[in-house]
């Protein structure tokens, strides 16, 4: 039996778009949450610092897959509300990304010397203004390049959404496989598409790194997905 693989191209392309959207959303929420956690990690109050540390350590020691299971199967049971696979996947991705991003943002903030804080305070800026006008613009140089690595990890992790039935890129590939001869060509195609997307992103990240001369892809170690 011969299959007209090209006929599936539009489907795959749309699915790739869905995967990108899902990962982007997870990453965005994760980055915002991660920034909050990073601020807590640098807080004056010990209890807040401790809470933030427990938060990051927890999400880094638990596989994202069981978090996704819990969000999808467990939360509706506990809260009595309906949760779509999309919401469950986004939340799980965001939780995981937030713990990694908190480390990235913390490193970024800490890379800005104490003198900058003191100078800004001496000039009469409030802490928020100091953050906004002095610290953030400098920290972003350190934060941006490794964020690319976190995004790639999130994109790879988004494939797990297929396990809870969300039809993104991986699930689409599996469905195509079921409706054709069951071979592994659709799976190889999946690998190639993911590779191309991620490789393109990582090349972009490399360009950023060269431009900023700082930072490092964070997914080199400890972030298989």
């Amino acid at each position: 039996m011969t299959v007209d693989w090209l006929a599936y191209a539009p489907l795959i392309l749309r699915a790739a778009g869905i995967t990108l959207w899902l990962s982007w959303l997870g990453m965005l929420v994760g980055a915002v949450g991660g920034t909050g956690i990073a601020l807590l990690r640098l807080s004056r109050w010990r209890i807040l610092r401790l809470l933030a540390l427990v938060y990051t350590e927890f999400w880094r020691s638990v596989p994202i897959l069981i978090v996704m299971f819990f969000c999808y199967f467990g939360v509706p049971l506990v809260l009595g509300i309906d949760i779509s696979p999309f919401t469950a996947a986004t939340v799980a991705l965001a939780l995981h990304a937030s713990s990694t991003m908190s480390e990235v943002v913390r490193a970024g903030i800490q890379s800005v010397g104490r003198g900058q804080w003191e100078a800004a305070q001496a000039a009469g800026l409030t802490p928020i203004q100091t953050m906004r006008y002095v610290i953030a613009p400098q920290a972003i140089r350190v934060v941006l390049p490794p964020s690319v690595g976190v995004f790639i990890t999130t994109l790879k992790e988004s494939s797990l959404a297929s396990i809870i039935g969300y039809i993104e890129l991986t699930k689409t590939g599996l469905l195509i496989r079921d409706s054709t001869d069951g071979g592994f060509i659709p799976l190889l195609a999946l690998a190639v598409i993911y590779f191309l997307i991620n490789y393109a992103i990582s090349l972009g990240g490399g360009a950023l790194e060269r431009r900023f001369h700082i930072g490092r892809r964070l997914d080199t170690v400890g972030a298989m997905a």
């Binding site: 494939s159 991986t170 799976l187 993911y194």
Partner: peptide
């Protein structure tokens, strides 16, 4: 580094 583990697992399992 750029391919999801899940896809690799499926390939090995089904190939």
């Amino acid at each position: 580094r750029n391919t999801p583990l899940l896809v690799i697992l499926y390939i090995v399992y089904f190939a």
